[in-house]
Amino acid sequence: MNPRRKQRLAVVGIIVALVAGAIGLMLFALNDSIDLFYTPSEIIEGKNGQKPQVGQRLRIGGMVVPGSVSRDSQSLAVRFDLIDTGPTVTVTYNGILPDLFREGQGIVATGVLSAEGQIKAQEVLAKHDEEYMPPELAEKMKGIKHVNPNNASQNGSGEG
């Protein structure tokens, strides 16, 4: 190989290394601002073998459990449970909720995992169309009937 080709190959190699390094540094810098989407089951059981860490910023989507919404009469603070196909997660939010927010409604909340199974939300969004459900969640919820814990204990049969 002649010296000119060696020199060009070295320059191309250095450029590729610099570009790869720049991309790696950008991804590292953006790591804190990436919001990963989780369902309540994935927060409790883990997603791809990893559970989110306390303090991690994330987005969670699920259905508001009927009877779980409690509002503070002195402030805008609200607390409610979310469910998908398994365990529930408690969400606390201090602010004005969307007009479409109600029990049994699908919502997406952005916030921080404050303790295991508890989210402190900075933003709550309610879905617009009652018929729409993300395909992944629709697939998981096929054939699953959610039982209201209050009704299950009253009639003793576990049927809601």
Rank of each mutant, 00 (worst) to 15 (best):
V65C: 12
P66N: 01
P66E: 07
P66L: 01
S68W: 08
S68H: 07
S70P: 03
S70Y: 00
S70K: 14
R71C: 04
R71M: 06
D72F: 03
D72R: 13
S73C: 06
S73K: 12
S73W: 10
Q74I: 03
A77H: 11
A77N: 07
A77R: 10
V78L: 06
V78H: 02
R79S: 15
D81P: 06
L82Y: 14
L82T: 06
L82K: 13
L82M: 09
L82W: 14
I83S: 01
T85C: 08
T85Q: 08
G86R: 15
T88V: 13
T88Q: 12
V89E: 14
T90E: 13
V91C: 12
T92P: 07
Y93K: 00
Y93Q: 02
N94D: 14
G95R: 10
G95E: 10
G95S: 04
P98D: 12
P98W: 04
D99Y: 00
D99K: 13
D99R: 09
L100W: 05
L100G: 04
L100T: 12
R102V: 01
E103T: 03
E103S: 11
G104K: 01
Q105Y: 00
Q105L: 04
G106H: 07
G111D: 12
V112M: 10
L113I: 03
L113W: 00
A115I: 03
E116P: 08
G117I: 06
Q118V: 12
Q118D: 02
I119V: 15
I119A: 14
A121K: 09
A121F: 01
Q122G: 14
E123D: 08
E123L: 15
E123M: 14
L125I: 00
K127L: 14
H128M: 10
H128C: 09
E130T: 08
E131W: 07
M133W: 05
P134Q: 03
P135T: 00
P135N: 03
P135W: 04
L137N: 04
A138L: 07
E139I: 02
E139A: 10
K140G: 01
G143Y: 06
I144N: 00
K145M: 06
H146I: 07
V147I: 12
N148F: 02
N148D: 13
N148Y: 02
N150M: 08
N151T: 02
S153V: 12
S153Y: 01
S153M: 09
Q154M: 11
G156W: 05
